[in-house]
Design a binder for these strands. Structure first.
Length: 397
RNA sequence: GCUGGAGUCGUCUAGUGGCAAUGACAAGAGACUGUAAAUCUCUCGCGCUUCGCGCUUCGUUGGUUCGAGUCCAACCUCCAGCA
């Protein structure tokens, strides 16, 4: 089992440490979205320096390119992308939701590669195998997000997610059993041999011989009775933690999280999938018992010129910043804010320089990482409610 | 001076008798939440009571025509060639 120590509780909120083979994650923590084994526009050194504790890559994207075999050959995700800290992989389940023309059956999901149209198929088992080959510390179960808001569709997707979870758990445990472990759980050993019908004829070897962990994913959309059902189902599984999926807005998230996180076992970590673009998401998520977050929003918005400040987001491309030689966020100690003015960032964006996206990404990623870190600190200090109130009042004024 | 070509929104450009007039860029603004996103959307002659109306536009001035950016004439400017 994944080790998770809780240092302090405050209602549903908790401050803890997740101990992974690649190191600790002090929670609550914001996990960087590294879909294709890179946080867009940033080097891992920059990610490290801005304070990121972990990254999350995407199984779907890595299956397409470069292929999970190559990542295994490189020594696993962490070695491949040179991120020597904790890693997560998402299962590819989200792509069922986001891609057009996916065929979902009980057995599998079939889709065409968005790159070259090639046919692909992912099953709960093959997602597990792929994630083991990629070798992240924490894997997500292969889940199904309903495309419609209809309750019937939601319920059906939820039940399928549960049935698939059984298969994910079984495959995960089978893989663990089949692996010939060398040394202890955290040591790297020889490549392990796995059997797979999806990734090579006879055998596929997993990444480094170190333990990898599985999170179940809670679904149920905006229906709290479904959320409760899903949380109960997931809670009963022999998994290491939980992803909470299918959340798209902070509206109603507090009630939903109260429902879900009151049911999920306290001693296992919870990851709020895909949320964190809005600071509100982080405050509400942490307050109601989530330990980690990931979101593409901060880096995507950075590339598009939308930058966080304590007074809300600004669009640095706006003409009013042409002659603004002040810092983006005077209190910020990121590389961007410490060295450059708004006028310079404005200029880089207007001239479409690559560095614009780099500096903006450093800032935005640092912003969400450090806000989450401060949420952690305020929970430890017992000042969370004050911090939340003053932060949100200023940010959303 | 002669001959040929060209002058359309900030720029380049489409348009050869019935459109305030194409596309691109620039400019202005907005969106973005488990990344098919270095993306996408909107505005971009002027003024309004702005899912519509009015006015003024395609080098200039006239002309032909019900109607001209489109045809004709003269002029102005630019380019090329010849003197």
């Amino acid at each position: 089992m994944l080790k998770f120590d809780i240092e302090k509780r405050d209602g549903l909120a908790r401050v803890g440490v997740i101990h992974t083979p690649h190191g600790d994650i002090k929670t609550p923590a914001f996990v960087g979205a590294a879909t294709r084994a890179t946080v867009k526009a940033l080097t891992m050194k920059q990610m490290n320096e801005l304070g990121s504790q972990a990254i999350l890559a995407n199984t779907y994207h890595l299956i397409l390119r470069p292929g999970v075999e190559l990542i295994k050959e490189a020594g696993g995700l962490a070695e491949f992308c040179s991120w020597h800290k904790p890693t997560f992989t998402d299962s590819g389940g989200f792509q069922i939701f986001s891609l057009p023309d996916v065929k979902i059956t009980e057995e599998s999901v079939k889709f065409k590669s968005h790159i070259d149209g090639a046919n692909f198929e992912i099953t709960p088992e093959s997602s597990m195998q792929a994630q083991w080959a990629i070798g992240a510390d924490i894997h997500m179960a292969f889940d199904h997000l309903a495309k419609s808001e209809d309750k019937k569709d939601m319920e059906e997707a939820m039940h399928r997610t549960h049935r698939w979870l059984d298969r994910c758990v079984a495959e995960h445990q089978r893989i663990i059993k089949d692996v010939t472990w060398a040394g202890d759980e955290t040591g790297r050993g020889p490549q392990n041999v796995l059997r797979s019908k999806n990734f090579g004829e006879g055998k596929v070897s997993a990444g480094p011989a170190q333990m990898q962990y599985l999170y179940a994913v809670v679904q149920g959309g905006t229906f709290n009775d479904l959320r409760a059902k899903s949380a109960k189902y997931c809670a009963g599984q022999p998994v290491d933690g939980f992803g909470i999926g299918g959340v798209f807005t902070a509206d109603g998230m507090d009630e939903m999280l109260k429902t879900v996180n009151s049911i999920l076992p306290e001693d296992k970590p919870r990851h709020l999938l895909g949320m964190g673009q809005e600071p509100l998401d982080l405050f509400v998520g942490a307050e109601f018992g989530c330990d980690t977050f990931d979101c593409v929003g901060p880096t995507r918005m950075a590339r598009n010129g939308s930058l966080y400040t304590y007074d809300g987001r600004i669009n640095i491309k706006n003409a009013k910043y042409t002659h603004d030689f002040s810092q983006l966020m005077p209190d910020c100690d990121c590389e961007c804010c410490k060295n450059y003015t708004k006028a310079y960032l404005h200029h880089l964006f207007k001239t479409d320089e690559i560095t614009a996206k780099v500096l903006a990404s450093i800032h935005n990623e640092h912003f969400v990482v450090s806000v989450t870190d401060q949420i952690r600190q305020s929970l430890l200090d017992g000042t969370f409610q004050n911090y939340k109130k003053s932060f949100l009042a200023r940010y959303y004024k």
